[in-house]
């Protein structure tokens, strides 16, 4: 009725946006994970996947990227708005603040969200733009000869090598696994919250969906964390058939970094 109502959106609408963008981002995470897991099928599989993905028309590619960015943006914007409002509504802590049943993950959503966000930024710079100093893989990793079904061969960027190379760095792997752990926490509350916020659960489905959320979050953690762990345990390693002249030197540099930092 009032003229203001067209600009402001209600608390529930903010939460709906949060939930909808959240679940879409969750969908991206799942697809991304399934794509990544192809690394276990060998360099051919993941490099082909990466090649196909990059061969998509530009408007599809950038459309997808921009929508993801938009979703992240809305998700964050709503989170910030909601958090500010919440702080305003509850100005003071109790003398002896008690918590009865709120889960740890529910209480750390802003924190886990922020750390995951910083991870995403790093991750894009690291593996997508490949501009992190010392990790400019475009220069360092030779192209990969991808053989197609029709027998033709194309030189493509070697994603497989990049993954193995990237995760050979302790810091990168540690940050990656930590972030996936936090993402898992974020999602275990976020997913069950999504069902709650969109009103998609009731007395019977609440425990079931909570378990689904936890299981899915754990699945995502395992799926992502499996890759760096596999690199470290040697399950994933540089393909011997391809030779990387420059690689050893890169590894040496990184190892030097680690030892030098370790001794500081």
């Amino acid at each position: 009725m009032s003229s203001k109502s067209c600009i402001c959106i209600s608390s529930l609408q903010k939460k709906f946006l949060m939930a909808i963008t959240g679940v879409l981002l969750f969908g991206f995470v799942i697809v991304h994970m399934l794509g990544n897991l192809q690394v276990f099928l060998g360099p051919d599989a993941i490099n082909l996947y990466a090649y196909k993905l990059h061969s998509l028309p530009a408007f599809v590619m950038w459309g997808a990227r921009l929508s993801l960015l938009l979703m992240v943006g809305v998700h964050i914007l709503m989170a910030v708005k909601l958090t500010i409002e919440n702080k305003k509504s509850r100005p003071r802590e109790y003398d002896n603040e008690g918590t009865v049943q709120a889960s740890y993950s529910s209480r750390t959503m802003p924190m886990t969200g922020l750390i995951v966000l910083s991870f995403i930024i790093f991750h894009i710079l690291h593996y997508t733009s490949r501009v992190v100093p010392g990790m400019e893989y475009d220069d360092k990793i030779p192209s990969y000869s991808l053989e197609f079904e029709d027998g033709s061969v194309k030189q493509v960027f070697d994603v497989y090598a990049m993954i193995v190379e990237g995760f050979s760095n302790y810091f990168v792997s540690f940050f990656y696994i930590l972030s996936m752990g936090l993402l898992c926490m974020h999602l275990s509350h976020g997913l069950s919250s999504m069902f709650q916020t969109l009103g998609l659960r009731n007395k019977v489905w609440r425990p079931r969906l909570n378990n689904v959320a936890r299981a899915t979050a754990l699945f995502i953690f395992i799926g992502f964390a499996a890759i760096p762990i596999s690199v470290f345990s040697g399950v994933l390693h540089h393909n011997d058939s391809n030779t990387y002249s420059s690689l050893n030197s890169v590894n040496d540099v990184q190892n030097d970094n680690i030892t030098s930092e370790g001794t500081q």
Partner: peptide, 9 residues
């Protein structure tokens, strides 16, 4: 009032 973040408290 603040917004629900599904704490369950």
């Amino acid at each position: 009032f603040g917004n629900c973040t599904n704490y369950g408290e």
